[in-house]
Computed example of a mutant assay.
Amino acid sequence: MEFRDVRGLTAELERFGVGVSPYTISGAEPGTHLGLPSPTVTLIVDLQDGLDLSGPGLSRRTLFRCCIGGLHTTPFTIHHDGSQIGVQVSLSPGAVRRLFGVPASALGSSSFELADLAPQLAVRLYDSVGSADSADRGRVAAQTLAAGIGSRLGPTPPGADPDAVRAWRRILHSTGRVTVGELVAESGWSARRLTGVFTAEFGLGPKQAARLVRFDAARRALESGVTPGSVAADLGYTDQSHLSRDFTEFTGHPPRRYLAERRAEFVAPAGH
């Protein structure tokens, strides 16, 4: 669910990369599912007993109430008892700047409580979403985030290096198929300088970011039913084996195995 019910800042928030997805899952077998790498920062407001995570940077399974995770290149595992209720928010790096006044790199690659970064927003978001009717949770979350962003809009997020932002947008526009050499030539700076400002802003180098963006596009295509061979060809992978290697690095599984695991994440108990 995008910000279609929020007045005033609706179009701007969508354009600057904020998406809200309320979810209610119940009646499934207890199990796990993957929190996959993506080019957006993920914020989850859990409305049950806490989001139960293990994965990058976490020494053990950890419960979160309002969890925010930085850009990461290996998956988290989300443990559940067969039900999950909450709201998931995707934030572009620019939206992170606008909401919190820090670059995406400041979040690292692990997950932590939103209260550690923005305590007042964490309280407002949890309380407002938690007290809303189930049908209104997405709208309420959107309004709370819109108020948090306020007037911090514009072509470049406040404080961000414009060369880093241009390179990030070029990577997104090319679906990760632009080379570092092309980014350097377009920037007019040295590879060292561009890589430095890019990494300082996003926590990933340009090549790593391009791989992440292309993987995300490949995942979406595979989940929509496109065959691995077609995905590899459409997204400029050398061949299907190249796609499989990249996919395994980001998810822990080759494409067909990943799709089978995804289908098995939330299943009803036998006999239901």
Rank of each mutant, 00 (worst) to 15 (best):
S90W: 00
R139A: 14
G154K: 10
F202W: 05
R166A: 15
K207N: 12
Q88K: 15
L172Q: 13
I171R: 11
E201W: 00
A167H: 02
L183T: 04
R193W: 01
L125W: 03
P157W: 01
A142N: 05
L222N: 09
A185H: 07
G154P: 03
L145V: 11
E113V: 07
F198H: 11
A209C: 13
A141R: 13
D161T: 08
T156W: 00
A167S: 09
S190A: 13
A95V: 03
G205Q: 02
L121P: 05
V96D: 01
W189L: 15
L107C: 11
D136M: 13
S109T: 11
G86T: 09
L117I: 10
R152Q: 10
P206W: 00
A221N: 04
A122H: 01
L204P: 08
R211G: 14
L204Q: 04
V129Y: 00
R166T: 14
L117W: 01
G181A: 12
D216Y: 02
R220C: 09
S105Y: 00
F198E: 08
A218W: 01
R170F: 02
A185C: 04
V197A: 11
A160G: 09
R139G: 15
G94T: 03
G94E: 03
G148F: 00
A106L: 08
G154C: 04
P206M: 04
V89C: 13
F198P: 09
I85S: 14
P158E: 06
V123I: 12
L117G: 10
A221V: 04
G188N: 04
S190K: 07
A95S: 11
G94K: 06
A104L: 02
G108P: 00
D127G: 13
G138V: 06
A164N: 07
L121H: 05
G130K: 14
P93T: 06
R211M: 08
L99H: 08
L91H: 05
